[in-house]
Amino acid sequence: MDLVVHSNHLVMSIGMIAMVWANTGTIATWGQSVFFTALAAVMAIGLLRTPGRDLRISLASHLALNAAMVWMLLAMPLLMAHPMGTGAHGDGSADGGGHDSGHHGDHSMAHGMPLSQTPDWATAVNWVAIALSALAAAWWLILLVRSCRIGIHTLCHAVMGLGMAGMLALM
């Protein structure tokens, strides 16, 4: 199970960095979603075989963060407001701005294009994902405090949970 969890961390870290800096596209989004769902399935099977309450809760926290990551990947278009319309207002750019629209502010708002509303069900599911991510972070912080020493591994897991909750909250 350690290999599965470490592979998960590696690919999720790369995916989160790529998500911030580049538009990864539809194929990469679906590929990541399938990968994280498959690893979550393996972790769920491992959860049934894992001895000890603490180890099971730790593995369950990884499952929660995987579910949150898949949600983030698939729901990003729903959660982030985007202009309603085709973007065919000038130069064909996605924001509909022409060459004179400048490089400050929100181009779509400057042109009076309304932003789409996030569906209520998506907002509710997002808050569930935020809560699960925060609970995962809290679990790792509890383990850190109980250990009476600074455990970088445990601290990193807490930061990952808080980072996931924060990213989802920003969306």
Rank of each mutant, 00 (worst) to 15 (best):
L63P: 05
H104K: 13
N66C: 15
M76P: 00
A81R: 08
H111G: 04
I142P: 00
L115H: 09
G87R: 03
I130L: 05
M113P: 00
L79E: 03
H82F: 00
M109H: 06
A138H: 06
H89E: 11
S101K: 07
A124R: 14
G98H: 07
G85C: 03
T118M: 13
H107K: 13
N66I: 04
A81S: 09
P77R: 01
W140A: 13
L78F: 08
M109F: 04
M69S: 10
A124H: 09
H99I: 14
S116L: 10
T123P: 00
A137T: 08
Q117A: 11
L65Q: 15
P119V: 09
T86D: 14
G105C: 10
M76A: 12
H107F: 03
L141K: 10
D91W: 09
L143G: 15
A75K: 05
G97I: 07
L132R: 09
A137R: 07
A110F: 08
V70S: 07
A88K: 08
L74G: 02
A67K: 10
V125R: 05
M76W: 01
S101G: 05
V128L: 14
H111S: 04
G85W: 02
S133G: 08
L79I: 02
G97A: 15
T123I: 14
A94N: 03
H111R: 13
P114S: 08
M109T: 12
A124S: 11
H99V: 14
A88W: 09
A136W: 11
S101P: 00
P83E: 02
G97N: 09
A110I: 09
M80T: 09
V125K: 03
A110T: 06
G105H: 06
M69A: 14
L115I: 03
A68T: 05
